[in-house]
């Protein structure tokens, strides 16, 4: 079985630090064949280009192990849209928003303009969720309903107290996928009950959480073998276009 970590970080963030050597070692020791990476901290807030360049370099060095998403702060407007297009032309495969750090609502005009570019580029959009005031599931739901052709990944399924709305949002907007980092096991089970296993993606958010912790959670989920395979890799492979 191939395991894909659908969301983790790479780079020299102020708080989140991980280089590609350590990342690949951790993947190897946990049987993870592929990881979707993006930058964080100062790189997602302000230094988008510097962060993206490091991701572009890492995925070009390890194309069979890593897929990269671009970070763009919606406040950069047209400059941000240009950066997104540059990243996609340079080999990145999606957009990663962290409105908690970027300071805007999912429903804001500046976000919608950026998502319009993601729609034209036909790329998936990862969104950190669970942090009030700017990163809650129902905001993402409204955005997803307005862009039905864009696939949105609801990062950490609204964890912590946003979980109440995570299932509701994904049930209402069929283009929302739920990523499992931090989510307690019964909350993942609840999401599966509401939307099925097809739209659940395993992710670690490492180095925030860890592959060890997050994989153990999926193992402890009461699920058949096929369901586990889908969550651990097949769903992400299909959505993001990763060959496994």
């Amino acid at each position: 079985m191939s395991i894909i970590d659908a969301h983790c970080y790479l780079g020299d963030g102020v708080y989140m630090k991980r280089n590609s050597g350590d990342l690949l070692d951790e993947m190897d020791s946990h049987g993870v064949s592929h990881a979707v990476v993006n930058s964080t901290d100062q790189y997602s807030a302000v230094y988008n280009r510097e962060g993206n360049d490091e991701i572009i370099r890492a995925v070009s060095e390890h194309p069979d192990r890593l897929t990269g998403f671009a970070v763009v702060n919606p406040w950069y407007g047209q400059k941000g849209a240009d950066e997104l297009r540059r990243c996609i032309e340079s080999g990145l495969r999606g957009l990663s928003l962290d409105t908690r750090r970027q300071g805007c609502f999912f429903t804001d005009t500046i976000v919608r303009r950026l998502i319009q570019h993601a729609a034209e580029l036909e790329i998936p959009v990862y969104c950190h969720t669970g942090t009030p005031i700017h990163a809650l599931p129902l905001g993402l739901m409204e955005l997803a309903l307005d862009f039905p052709k864009v696939s949105f990944i609801m990062g950490s399924g609204g964890w912590a107290d946003g979980w109440y709305d995570a299932g509701t949002a994904a049930k209402t907007a069929p283009n929302i996928f739920i990523e499992t980092s931090y989510c307690a096991i019964p909350l993942i089970a609840n999401a599966i009950r509401l939307i099925g296993v097809e739209r659940i993606l395993f992710g670690s958010d490492a180095p925030g959480s860890s592959l060890e912790t997050e994989l153990l959670k999926i193992r402890l989920l009461d699920l058949d073998a096929r369901g586990r395979e889908m969550i651990l890799g097949d769903n992400a492979a299909r959505l993001i276009g990763i060959r496994i």
Binding site: A184, I185, P186, A189, E212, T213, L216, K217, L220
Partner: peptide
């Protein structure tokens, strides 16, 4: 709350 088997997970952390 995090599941009947959550101790294993929490201790392993």
């Amino acid at each position: 709350f995090p599941g009947d088997s959550c101790i294993e997970l929490a201790v392993s952390q």
